Computed example of a mutant assay.
Amino acid sequence: MANIKSAKKRILVNETKAARNKAIKSKVKTYVKKVETAVAHSDKAAAEEALKAAIVEINKAGSKGVYHKNTCARKVSRLTKAVNGIA
């Protein structure tokens, strides 16, 4: 356990940031799952709507520094490719 005041503060700040990052990642996973479910059911309209919402959330997570920009681009690309693959 830290004895120095600044170290104690860092521990608290790190816990707060970790909780925020975890919540954002969880939200992104939920939106991605909605897209994948729509793709699995071959529902083109629902998949496109879910994709729009997922892209917004993924980019928001990237802008907040939760994900690296290349990770965001990869996730968006894979989801878009899956939605476009629906006949």
Rank of each mutant, 00 (worst) to 15 (best):
A18G: 03
K52G: 08
V39Y: 03
A19V: 13
G65S: 10
A7W: 11
G65L: 04
E36Y: 00
V66A: 01
V13N: 07
R78C: 07
R74Y: 12
A47L: 12
A23Q: 10
K22C: 09
K64A: 09
M1N: 07
A19P: 11
A45I: 12
T16I: 07
K22M: 14
L51E: 03
T80S: 12
L12D: 12
N70T: 11
E57Y: 05
T71K: 09
A18W: 02
K34L: 07
K34N: 07
N3M: 14
A82G: 09
K33A: 15
Y67T: 01
N3I: 10
E57K: 07
A45L: 12
A73N: 12
A47W: 04
I86M: 04
K9N: 10
K64V: 07
N84E: 15
K8V: 13
T30G: 10
N21P: 04
E48P: 03
S6F: 08
A47M: 10
T37I: 11
S63W: 08
T30Q: 12
R10D: 15
L51K: 02
A46N: 12
T30Y: 10
K44T: 11
I86C: 07
N59S: 07
V76C: 12
A40G: 06
K60S: 10
K81W: 03
L12G: 08
E49A: 14
A46C: 10
K33V: 09
N84P: 06
K8Q: 14
E15H: 09
R20A: 11
I55R: 07
A7G: 08
A18H: 07
V32S: 05
